[in-house]
């Protein structure tokens, strides 16, 4: 694996790395990952910028106000995508942790490590925009109801994961500890999702549900879905670029170590 190449060009590289195994481990080869992700990343970034470039102005200027909330309803277009990313991203973290714990997939370790700070940012933004929305509408910045509290717990789980995987000198051990924490914390995801249905909360129930018509009028729904897609693409592009950087940094460390050993040798 150490001899992986980092070129991002299209030509196939002769990699004397571990013999390619089937299944998931096909993508464990860092050289192949860098090559493939290098081709995907520009497109992902361009798509994110394009979709957000349409969705954000649409929500801010070209969508109607709500009949009772007025212009404040526009916070929806940034708050709800952040909430989706906070939860969907955590589901991704749990999936990566399973890959990391059971299949010992080396790329899953790195991806989880790079995912958690981005997820923490999305969750923090979800809490902050929710607070900015709650003050004019509910009349309070914060209440300890089941939804808000469980999202705060989700934020601490993201932060805890980001800190824990970086707390060990042995990166593999850190990744394993982080994966265990992520999987224990995964019980919180259904609690966040269903808190508004299971208990009385100040937060209203979900508007966009799989069953039944959305409680959002289409003039509000379409810009929301556009922003949701745009932020999801941006989130994915950020995580992919961070994972690429981490793969390259690992390779740099290996090269530096090898150079130091050569210098020491008589």
């Amino acid at each position: 694996m150490d001899t992986a190449d980092t070129r991002t060009g299209p030509s196939p590289l002769p990699l004397p790395a571990a013999a390619p195994r089937g299944g998931l481990h096909r993508f464990a080869n860092p050289g192949r990952f860098l090559r493939l992700s290098g081709q995907v990343l520009p497109w992902l970034t361009a798509a994110a910028v394009l979709v957000l470039g349409i969705g954000l102005p649409w929500g801010l200027f070209f969508s109607p106000p709500d009949w009772q909330q007025g212009e404040t309803v526009r916070i929806l277009y940034v708050h709800v995508p952040m909430a989706w990313l906070a939860m969907g991203g955590y589901a991704g973290l749990a999936l990566g942790s399973v890959l990391s714990l059971i299949w010992r997939h080396p790329l899953a370790d790195l991806a989880c490590r790079e995912l958690s700070p981005v997820g923490a940012l999305a969750t923090a933004l979800c809490l902050a925009t929710g607070s900015l929305w709650g003050k004019p509408m509910w009349g309070t910045w914060w209440v300890w109801d089941a939804r808000l509290t469980s999202v705060l717990v989700l934020f601490f789980l993201w932060l805890g994961h980001a800190a824990l995987v970086r707390a060990f000198d042995d990166t593999e051990r850190g990744a394993r500890m982080g994966a265990i924490l992520a999987l224990i914390g995964a019980v919180n995801v259904p609690i966040v999702k269903f808190s508004v249905d299971w208990w009385n909360t100040l937060h209203q129930p979900a508007s966009v549900t799989r069953l039944g018509a959305p409680g959002l009028h289409v003039d509000i729904l379409y810009p929301l879905l556009t922003c949701g897609l745009g932020f999801t693409l941006a989130f994915a592009a950020l995580v992919l670029a961070r994972t690429r950087a981490a793969v390259m940094e690992r390779r740099i460390r290996a090269l530096q170590l090898a150079a130091a050993r050569r210098a020491e040798a008589p």
Binding site: L56, L60, T72, V118, L121, L132, W133, F231, A234, L238
Partner: peptide
């Protein structure tokens, strides 16, 4: 109301931009 809307947009766009 617009102050809260603007602050929300600024926070989210700024956060993503800084991270990018």
């Amino acid at each position: 109301h617009w102050i809260h809307v603007t602050a929300s947009y600024a926070l989210v766009c700024g956060g993503f931009l800084i991270l990018a």
